Simulated scan of single mutants.
Amino acid sequence: MDISSCVKSFLVYIVIFTFSVQATLGSIACEKLNKDSCAFAVSSSGKRCVLEKNVRRSGEEVFVCSTSQIDTDKLTSWIETDECLDACGLDRNVLGISSDSLLESRFMQKLCSTRCYNGCPNIVDLYFNLAAGEGVYLPSLCQAQGDSKRRGMSEIRSLGYIAAHGPMVPTKLMVDGSPTMAPSPVGPY
Rank of each mutant, 00 (worst) to 15 (best):
Q143C: 09
N129Y: 07
H165Q: 12
Q22R: 12
R48L: 10
F63I: 04
L75W: 01
A23S: 13
I97D: 10
I162V: 15
H165L: 11
R150H: 06
P139Y: 07
N34V: 01
I3V: 14
D73W: 01
S20Q: 12
L75D: 02
S58I: 07
S101I: 03
A132S: 11
R92L: 10
G177C: 04
I123E: 10
D125T: 04
S99F: 09
S105R: 07
F128N: 15
E52P: 02
K53F: 00
I14N: 12
Y127H: 14
L141K: 03
N54Q: 11
K110D: 13
C30H: 04
L85C: 07
E61C: 02
G187N: 06
S158I: 00
E134K: 14
S77M: 04
L51V: 08
A39E: 05
W78Y: 15
A182L: 11
S113H: 08
P139F: 08
V94T: 14
D125L: 03
A131F: 01
C142Q: 02
S68K: 13
A29P: 00
G146A: 14
R157T: 09
A87N: 14
D125W: 01
R151D: 09
Y117D: 12
M181R: 14
G177L: 05
C38K: 06
N54F: 05
D176K: 08
C30V: 04
S43Q: 12
K172M: 12
S140Q: 11
N118P: 03
N129H: 15
G146F: 09
N122H: 14
C65R: 08
S58G: 04
I79C: 00
G177M: 05
S37P: 01
G59A: 06
P167G: 05
S105T: 12
S27A: 01
F10V: 11
Q109R: 11
K53T: 06
V50T: 15
N118Q: 14
N93S: 13
T81D: 13
L90W: 07
S45Q: 13
A182F: 02
S58V: 07
S37Q: 15
F40H: 14
I28P: 02
E155V: 12
P183K: 10
L126Y: 03
K47C: 06
G146C: 08
E60I: 05
Q109N: 08
T24N: 01
S148V: 02
G160L: 04
Y13I: 12
P139E: 10
L33N: 05
S178V: 03
L90K: 08
N129T: 09
V50N: 08
Q143Y: 11
N118Y: 11
A182D: 07
F63K: 10
M168F: 03
N118V: 10
E80Y: 02
T76D: 01
T171H: 05
L95S: 01
G26Q: 01
M1R: 11
A163S: 02
D91E: 09
V186D: 05
V94P: 00
G26E: 01
T81K: 09
L173M: 07
M168D: 06
K47V: 03
S45Y: 06
